[in-house]
Simulated assay, not measured.
Amino acid sequence: MKLNIQNETSRLRAVILGTAESNGPTPKVEDCYDPKSRQHVLAGTYPKEVDMIKEMEAVAKVLERYDVTVYRPKVLKDYNQIFARDISFVIEDKIVVANILPDRKREVEATEYVWEHVEKKNRIILPDECHVEGGDVMPWNDYIFIGTYSGEDYPDYITARTNVDAVIAIQELFPHKIVKSFELRKSNTDPKDNALHLDCCFQPVGKDKAIIHKNGFLVESEYEWLVNFFGKKNVFEITKDEMYDMNSNIFSISEDVIISEKNFTRLNTWLRDNGFTVEEVPYAEIAKQEGLLRCSTMPLIRD
């Protein structure tokens, strides 16, 4: 398999889409990986497997309608395998297998059947000290944008998923790219004050536009750099509630076709006003786990 990912929006040809099958029972509060899941466990509103399967199948149907080859993880019994983006990511012709939370190692094995067809020299496993998840890594042509957290209290945050060691390692892997890192706001308890990954508060769309939430960034000048990079008129600013609902976590099939959650009324209107075709799907149940469409898809090949 010849991988090719240069950016977030070129025409998609092949993708790994997670699965909600055999997702397992509702986790205990102490076993939750993020504050939003924890909130829904406590409230008794954690999503049901049957509802999440329906939501993911709706996405699969859209992808297949656009002639995208869709791979799914091998189903592991009673195991959450929804967020395929966490466990690996592709930049150019290389697949990087993420160093994720130890409890999630089996997720990597479930997609091994796909990336074992990639030439061995293009399969990258980073050193153990490099912590990274795909939701924090965004190739954007000459740039690689990476969300990180470098505070001394990094080990205290289960929501801090990508460290500075990983940023350095990715720069060394792709020396011809400009790696730009962004410090993200973290909270173990308040999902409205937590940017779990970069794609929870920012995402490019089309050729020159972006969705962004200012409070997701710890350093205001880094947020301002992104706004200036894309141009204020090309940026759609989302509110704290819209970030909580995961408005920046949509998914591009091409520069003009986007899969979005059907309840994102303000965003979807803006996208259509800017010439995008918006394929609306129900994904509000999956959003309860602090991830949405970008989190559950891992692109392999774009034109």
Rank of each mutant, 00 (worst) to 15 (best):
L300G: 01
C32K: 08
M138N: 07
E220D: 15
A195E: 00
H117C: 11
N23G: 14
I100L: 08
M1P: 05
A58P: 09
K28Q: 13
H117V: 12
H213T: 15
V278D: 07
P282S: 13
Y223F: 09
P35V: 01
A195L: 02
K61F: 06
V278M: 07
Q203Y: 12
Q289Y: 12
N163E: 08
M56Y: 07
A98Q: 00
V227S: 07
V59L: 07
M243G: 14
K120I: 15
D256L: 05
E107A: 07
V75M: 04
R38M: 14
P299M: 07
P299G: 07
L173W: 08
V41P: 08
K214I: 10
V96E: 00
I253E: 01
K214D: 11
T277E: 07
W225S: 12
F264G: 05
I125M: 10
A14Q: 01
V219P: 03
A287W: 03
N228Y: 12
D34L: 05
F89L: 01
L42D: 13
D128R: 12
T45S: 08
W140N: 03
V281G: 10
H117T: 14
V15M: 08
D67M: 11
S88V: 05
P191G: 11
L12K: 05
I168V: 15
K121V: 14
L198P: 00
Y113L: 06
